[in-house]
Simulated scan of single mutants.
Amino acid sequence: MSRPEVPMRISELAETTGVPVHTLKYYLREGLLMPGEATSRTRAEYGPEHVERVRLVRALVEHGGVGIAGISAILSALGNPPASRHDLLGIAHYALPTPGDDGPVSEDVSDLVAELGWSVSAQAPAARALSVALAAARDAGVGVTADALRRYARAMEQVAAVDLDVALAADDPATAMHTVVVGTVMVDPVLVALRRMAQESVSTRRS
């Protein structure tokens, strides 16, 4: 659907985006949607920037599974992009919700980082999350060997190279930040689906 260029009331914003009025009002209360331009004490008008914001928030909630706190952090990062593309990546990683990132980094994760020569912060949320995920896998009876973990990591390097190629091709820091943050959330399900398709293909070839 094309972006409307004329001001609209909240009911029209709801019709344009497919998001109910009560949900839009919730977004407004939570600060996820910027206020419209007041035309009276009880009315406001909304424009194309509101349509874009609503569609972004909806995508993060419905497809990315991001909670309100995570969306607030993402929007804050998008509104204040750093000049350095590397700093941009760091801000994006800390803004993104990472389940299981509140524990310590395990020895096997530290050993992996050292073995691969990766430049990863000792307190990176993803390193802590990986430690928790590996422990959970072991508890479920699915041990990930050091060799398997290493191979997974090498495969992820290739994925990361694609991610960075796309982000660094952006014309400005704001666009790059949007690409990294939103792209990471929205592309994660794509990678999961591709992994399962690849499993089926490899299994077929080996059978």
Rank of each mutant, 00 (worst) to 15 (best):
R29D: 11
L130R: 10
M186R: 08
L96Y: 04
L60D: 09
G70H: 00
G31R: 07
N80Y: 09
A14I: 11
P7K: 06
V57A: 02
V181R: 01
G31N: 05
T204K: 15
E30T: 03
N80T: 15
A135E: 13
A95S: 12
V113N: 00
V190Q: 00
V180Y: 07
V66H: 01
Y94G: 07
W118K: 06
L75N: 01
A69S: 13
L130Y: 05
R195E: 13
M1D: 02
A153K: 03
V182D: 09
M186Y: 09
D102P: 02
D108S: 13
R85W: 08
T16A: 14
L168C: 10
S119Y: 13
A174D: 06
S2I: 13
A124E: 07
A160K: 11
D188H: 14
V51H: 07
V113W: 06
L56S: 09
A160G: 09
V166Y: 04
H93R: 15
T204F: 13
R151K: 15
A133D: 04
G141H: 13
V109R: 06
A137C: 15
D165C: 11
P99S: 03
Y27A: 05
D139Q: 14
A155Q: 10
E62K: 06
A122Y: 06
S84Y: 05
L194K: 14
E107A: 13
R128T: 05
L78P: 01
G18W: 06
E200S: 15
R128W: 07
T16M: 07
R150Q: 08
D87Q: 14
A160N: 08
A44G: 08
